[in-house]
């Protein structure tokens, strides 16, 4: 089984874990990410696990250790896309991984890490006002003003 690519995107590293994972591959990912943080002077790591149908205590530990090492090297790690069944199982297993930062999507993680992302997703929040801007922004037909 081949290695998992660690992709630099600006000052963030992006890792997407796909499919069945051998222990050795998971362990080498840990090395690869730590080395890449150093090499690219990264300040954030996003690990997407939306393709994983299982995380056991070994893989949970690998994720927690990647986050721990990254922190020591000055980079924040965010794990994204964990499936419901995987989350329930991890918690039942006793692994709540409180040190691990998480986000629903890669995009959310990028926002958390302060990385610029395209704002094509302004579908959200049809009525209420963005906190940082006093004016209501409505992409649609918001023309009820005078």
């Amino acid at each position: 089984m081949s290695q998992i690519p660690v992709i630099p995107l600006g000052d963030v590293l992006f890792v997407s874990i796909q499919g069945e994972l051998y222990d050795a591959v998971a362990l080498s990912l840990q090395d690869d990410v730590t080395n890449a943080i150093q090499a690219h002077n990264a300040r954030g790591v996003i690990i997407d696990i939306s393709a994983l149908d299982m995380v056991d205590s070994f893989l949970g530990r690998v994720l927690a250790e990647i986050a721990g090492c990254s922190r020591l090297l000055g980079a924040d790690t965010v794990v994204t896309g964990m499936r419901p069944a995987v989350a329930i199982t991890l918690v039942e297993l006793g692994l709540t991984l409180p040190e691990l930062r998480t986000a629903r999507t890669v995009e959310d993680a990028a926002l958390m890490l302060g990385v610029w992302v395209s704002s094509r997703t302004s579908r959200a929040a049809p009525v209420a006002v963005r906190q940082d801007e006093p004016e209501a922004m409505d992409g649609g037909s918001g023309t009820d003003g005078p």
Binding site: M54, D56, S57, F58, P84, A85, I88, T89, E92
Partner: peptide, 17 residues
């Protein structure tokens, strides 16, 4: 069900390891 499957597969992974 999906959750039951995942729990069993995870338990199997722990015990096999």
């Amino acid at each position: 069900g999906l959750v039951q499957q995942t729990k069993l597969v995870t338990a199997a992974s722990e015990l096999a390891r």
